[in-house]
Structure formats: C-alpha cells, structure tokens
C-alpha cells in the first residue's frame, strides 16, 4: 500500500492511502504527473504541500474521504439536478456540528481547492439547505453577515423581488 504524505499549511504531516486521494482531482493530477504512485518511487520522501489548507481542516477532509472510499468520482461538470440532491445522514451529521462556523466553510473552500467534487457538492448543498425558506434578514442574523445596504437600496431590492413571493 502506497502512502502519500500531505502537509498542511501549519506543517502537520498526514500520511494518506494513495487510493483515497483519487477523490481529489488536484492531488490525483499531481500524483499521476509526478509518478508518485510508482512502487519504486520513494513517495514518503516527496510530501505534497497544501499551503491553502490548515491541519484541522485537512484532517476533516481525510476523515470524509475515508468514509467515502470507493464512491464513484464524478467526471466533468455536475449535471445533476441540484435542487434534488439529498445529503446522506452520515454527511449531514458530519457537517452539522460546524455548520454556522468557519470550519465548515473552510472545509468547503478546501473541497473546492482540492477539487473533491462529491464533498463540494454535499457541503454546498448542506449550506444551501440552511437558507431554505428564510428571508434575507433571517439569513443575515443566522450567519452574522453585516447589513451593508442603505434603507433605499434594501427597498429597491425588495421591490425587485416582490414578484417571487
């Protein structure tokens, strides 16, 4: 079994099974191009630095990849009907504890950076589920987003959106 070492931005080392990394388009491309999965190559001597991912986030990403080991990896653009994607229970429980905090969002950014399509889809879907049926001010309050609109601007957008009610 080939182990590949990933190095997070805070210089923690994570030895990961080569098989798991097939889910990440970014790392998979690197491994294939550098022949890191060759038995004769000393893969341990060539750790992959991930300067955009912090250690605790990378740990979560690896945890997620381990659970989804063997899942089919989507190729190309996601053609699914986005509104109908259901987040499986395990993933829901996985995302939930950190949902309104930075951890979940950093996980989403990491999924985008590492090009892990399934994780990005599910994580974005989990976030979008929290917006369902909520008004702008409610979402603002829940996520702590500051209100930058002037009352006139808010009124203009409200008028613009009136018909969607």
């Amino acid at each position: 079994m080939v182990l590949i070492t990933l190095v997070s931005s805070d210089e923690q080392n994570f030895p990961v099974e080569r098989e798991l990394l097939k889910q990440s388009g970014t790392i998979e491309t690197l491994i294939v191009n550098m022949n890191l999965d060759d038995e004769d190559t000393d893969a341990a001597a060539m750790p992959i630095p991930l300067p955009n991912v912090k250690g605790d986030v990378l740990e979560k990403v690896i945890q997620w990849m381990e659970h989804h080991k063997g899942d089919p990896v989507k190729e190309g653009d996601n053609e699914d009907n986005n509104a109908e994607i259901v987040v499986p229970q395990w993933d829901d429980d996985f995302f939930k504890p950190a949902m309104y905090g930075s951890k979940h969002l950093e996980l989403t950014v990491a999924a985008s950076y590492l090009d892990i399509k399934n994780l990005l889809t599910l994580s974005c879907k989990a976030i979008s589920n929290t917006f369902k049926g909520k008004t702008g001010p409610q979402i603002r309050e829940e996520w702590g987003v500051p209100n930058e609109f002037t009352p006139e601007e808010e009124e203009a957008i409200r008028k613009e959106n009136e018909w969607s009610e």
């Binding site: 986005n82 509104a83 994607i85 309104y100 905090g101 930075s102 969002l105 989403t108 950014v109 985008s112 990005l120 889809t121 974005c124 879907k125 976030i127 979008s128 917006f131 369902k132 049926g133 909520k134 008004t135 702008g136 001010p137 979402i139 996520w143 702590g144 987003v145 500051p146 609109f149 808010e154 957008i157 409200r158 613009e160 959106n161 969607s164 009610e165």
Partner: peptide, 28 residues
C-alpha cells in the same frame, strides 16, 4: 462573518443548489 469569507466560486456553487425563491432571498 464566516460566510462572506467564502470565495465567489464557492458561493456560486452554493447558490446553484438553491431554489428559485431562495435565490431572490439571498440577494437581500
């Protein structure tokens, strides 16, 4: 706030998974 820190690309990914009415709500 955490959400505003997301890059545009990720926000776009999230918005693509919303329903019509929720997209209008997000604009507010």
């Amino acid at each position: 706030d955490f959400f505003s820190r997301l890059p545009d690309l990720c926000i776009d990914e999230i918005f693509k998974r919303l329903l019509r009415k929720d997209i209008f709500n997000m604009s507010m």
